[in-house]
């Protein structure tokens, strides 16, 4: 990073932080509007360089099928033209269908892996008693949390009701633990930015 870049970076960092002092100030508004414009332009240019330019090169090599993909993308713009507005829906249908297919094609393997990883040894083997007790906690907590996610079984049934109750507590405990783990990590990021201002830019530490 050059000195000029460090200055721009530091000023933009401070500009963004002004939001903490006054949530409606012009410095923040300028920084954020510039940021919105620049990041989007960067995104378009990067996608063009990474995907579209190679695709256009394929066309030059006679791979005409890529035209279909380009057409599917272009059809989305038809939504702005009333007579051919329906073509925009064809395009959206393609994107949504691909997404649904993607879920069914690529996530079941992870799902099965998770099921497989849920099998816990409840007795026997050379497992120490302490670990076995913990494994029982895992097993019962898992079952209770699963019961919480049954949507069409009556919760008036005492077994289901108890399972749901325990499951809800287990889920809250887990979310609390995750909340706590995240807090300190995010603070370390803040210290990183403060260090940038005082070390990289101002050279005072």
């Amino acid at each position: 990073m050059t000195g000029a870049q460090a200055t721009v970076a530091a000023l933009s960092t401070i500009g963004l932080w002004t939001w903490l002092y006054d949530r409606e100030n012009v410095v923040f508004e300028v920084v954020q509007n510039l940021y919105i414009g620049l990041t989007f332009a960067y995104g378009i240019a990067l996608q063009y360089a990474d995907y579209l330019r190679p695709a256009l090169q394929r066309l030059q090599h006679g791979q005409w099928t890529i035209l279909l993909a380009i057409a599917l993308g272009l059809m989305l713009y038809c939504r702005y033209f009333k007579p051919v507005e329906f073509l925009g829906r064809w395009s959206v249908s393609y994107f949504v269908g691909y997404g649904a297919g993607y879920v069914l094609a690529f996530t079941p393997a992870v799902f099965l892996g998770q099921v497989n990883g849920s099998f816990t040894r409840l007795w026997g083997g050379a497992t120490p008693a302490g670990t076995l007790a913990s494994d029982w906690v895992f097993f019962l907590a898992l079952l209770a949390a699963l019961i919480y996610f049954f949507f069409t079984i009556s919760r008036r049934n005492p077994v289901v009701g108890a399972g749901v109750g325990v499951g809800r507590y287990v889920i809250m405990l887990a979310l609390g633990a995750l909340f706590g783990s995240t807090v300190l990590f995010r603070y370390s990021l803040l210290f990183g930015r403060v260090y940038f201002i005082f070390h990289t830019w101002l050279h005072v530490v």
């Binding site: 892996g113 099921v115 849920s118 099998f119 409840l122 026997g124 097993f139 019961i147």
Partner: peptide
């Protein structure tokens, strides 16, 4: 849910489950 219970019992008795082969 049943599979997880059966799998746990199976694992405790046999020491491994055939489910990993299925995965």
């Amino acid at each position: 849910f049943v599979l997880i219970v059966v799998g746990a019992v199976w694992l405790s008795i046999v020491g491994s489950t055939p489910f990993s082969s299925f995965v």
